[in-house]
Write a protein that binds this DNA or RNA. Sequence first.
DNA 1: CCGAGTTTGTAACATTTTTCACATACTATA
DNA 2: TATAGTATGTGAAAAATGTTACAAACTCGG
Lengths: 212, 212
Amino acid sequence: MHSDSIKVPKFTLKRLPLYYRCLRACLDRNQEYVSSEQIGKAAQVNAVQVRKDLALFGAMGTPGVGYCVADLKAKLEEVLGLNNVNEAVLIGVGRLGRAIIDYPGFERYGLHIVALFDSNPELIGTQVSGRPVFSTQEILHIIRRLQIKVAIITVPAEYAQSIANVLVEAGIRAIWNFAPAVIEVPSHVVLRNEDLAAGLATLFHYLAERNE
Amino acid sequence: MHSDSIKVPKFTLKRLPLYYRCLRACLDRNQEYVSSEQIGKAAQVNAVQVRKDLALFGAMGTPGVGYCVADLKAKLEEVLGLNNVNEAVLIGVGRLGRAIIDYPGFERYGLHIVALFDSNPELIGTQVSGRPVFSTQEILHIIRRLQIKVAIITVPAEYAQSIANVLVEAGIRAIWNFAPAVIEVPSHVVLRNEDLAAGLATLFHYLAERNE
DNA sequence: CCGAGTTTGTAACATTTTTCACATACTATA
DNA sequence: TATAGTATGTGAAAAATGTTACAAACTCGG
């Protein structure tokens, strides 16, 4: 591994995808150059912050003009690792699972969902959005054989932990948990709990603030 | 509005829902007391941080014992405003929209989705998960009549901005945007862009880090 | 009642992140 | 070729966040 030449702070990393989204929008509009101000507005971030973030990995703009959209986009893709394809499996083909399978953007971000798992017998053996659905009983076997390292959990909260245990046993290295449950994994596994409802707290907070 | 007595820092606010989730799990387990260490583990946060966050709004634990789960949960509900019910509408009854309508937790967080909108004639006039689906043409009319202040956008990216414009015109005060698009609203409207793919960046980053 | 073992609350410190201020560099127009 | 306008790059200051360390408070077993 020699990608350590680029060391991006945690907080910058969270903003980069927002910048990236803005760049894509610019490209769609055939806009050739973009200013830090414009990016900042789209990402709800200070313009100086944007410049500093971009400067971190050597993305330079030209004064008086801005950043070249195409170049910057390419640079971001490199830093975010969007060119590396990561194969993943998804467990729980319910509404949330299906929404994620079809969410436009995951593929673009290098996440390639190759297999699905569910416990519903009616689904097992079928295809959902072009991916085969296997029984949850086969998780261990299939993940090991395919050597998958990333898993997405979209099962009901009460099953999340037991699924996670099996995934870890199967050799999964990163878990993206959308189930509204607290799960625990060994320290060598990267866990990201995505709490959709958490965003509500922030939203309501600002809403209440405005109403004063 | 007299909740201004409690002023919670932005970052604390993002962590509180994670603590809350942990408390719910404790309650399900009939656990009476919980330590900051345990909460921290569940929320992937330092224990001292947890104590500091909780101290901010006067939640006190007892040394040697921990925090009373029931009390702390009640306190958090108050701070996060989970007792206030916020009525909301959702635009875009696709997979993502349906996933959100049924996501277990929004109701619990005080978000009450009362009406849906879509442009698909086959959906209009039907009910989805118990909510009526109206035409997107009626957004202005219905939102004004119902006096809804919160809207959730789950339409395809290319329609997000125009939908947002209508919502603003209808008097919406807070928009929660799940569409993978950059949208702009007047400053008096609270906008939260939820980029599901953004979490991937963090996940992959840590994954790469571990692999070194 | 005492002492070992926990766990909180908080002050002091270290680190990170954000903002401010301003010099520098490019474009365009006259 | 000036000159005005715009936008970047970056050092320094400010703010915030996170960590460490430790005294105080509680429980429990003897």
